[in-house]
């Protein structure tokens, strides 16, 4: 684990909000997207269908620590900035589903806000997710919060139909755990994207995304 001074993290997050991302929860009208984020003790899958350019329905499956969340959700593009050389977005998502933990299935609510900005050369994003969990008579379930901030650089500018490559650094903060830093190499070609990552603590990460 690498500890980042909190002031730097906050500055990075603010920079992310000021600017737009990759795992867009809403795509073009009629698009189906499959995204998956995986690392030690965490598997996250999101399947979406975009009705319009600003509204999508989705299904999240997240396995983290000892809990499994399965949440149908709505994703909304609140704002998009189409600039000459860049694009920025803000998204809101909300859902309601199940939390399978402690050999029980309990209801869980989900909320997320995401902002991103990207040009052909640079990319930054920030995402805040929260799962509002329900207690049992004997078990107190702590809400699950995850902040993910990313910044990326394309070492060369690729055209459409060429292999795109990005170098990315990601900071994760989950509940009261220390910040974890992961470096990724992202490759994408046409409608398929993969990210291979390693944490500064020696862990692995593998993400992929496909648009249909």
């Amino acid at each position: 684990m690498t500890k980042i001074p909190s002031i730097l993290l906050v500055m990075f997050m603010l920079a992310g909000f000021a600017l737009q991302a990759e795992a867009h929860p809403v795509s073009y009208a009629g698009a189906v997207s499959l995204m998956s984020y995986n690392r030690e003790n965490e598997n996250d899958v999101l399947l979406t269908y975009s009705f319009t350019r600003s509204l999508a329905v989705g299904l999240t499956y997240l396995k983290v620590e000892d809990a499994e969340y399965t949440v149908p959700r709505l994703n909304y593009l609140v704002q998009r900035w189409n600039n000459e050389d860049s694009q920025g977005n803000i998204y809101f998502s909300a859902g309601y589903g199940t939390d399978r933990s402690f050999e029980e299935i309990k209801p869980v609510s989900f909320g997320s806000v995401e902002a991103d900005w990207e040009s052909r050369r640079y990319y930054t994003s920030i995402q805040y997710n929260k799962f509002f969990r329900s207690d049992s008579d004997a078990i107190k379930r702590v809400d699950f919060e995850h902040i993910k901030a990313r910044a990326g650089l394309a070492p060369y500018l690729a055209e459409f139909n060429e292999l795109n490559a990005w170098l990315i650094v990601q900071f994760d903060k989950m509940n009261d755990r220390p910040v974890e830093t992961t470096q990724f190499i992202r490759l994408f070609y046409k409608n398929v994207l993969v990210e291979l990552g390693a944490t500064f603590g020696g862990g692995w990460a593998f993400n992929y995304m496909v648009h249909f």
Binding site: E22, H24, S27, Y28, G30, A31, R80, W81, N82, N83, E84, D85, S86, Q87, E118, S119, R120, A158, F160, N161, E162, N164, F188, Y189, K190, N191, L193, H211
Partner: peptide, 14 residues
């Protein structure tokens, strides 16, 4: 305007 990546271009092409 705003077409900065292959994913963007894919949607437009489709």
């Amino acid at each position: 305007k705003g077409m900065v990546c292959s994913f963007c271009a894919q949607g437009i092409t489709k």
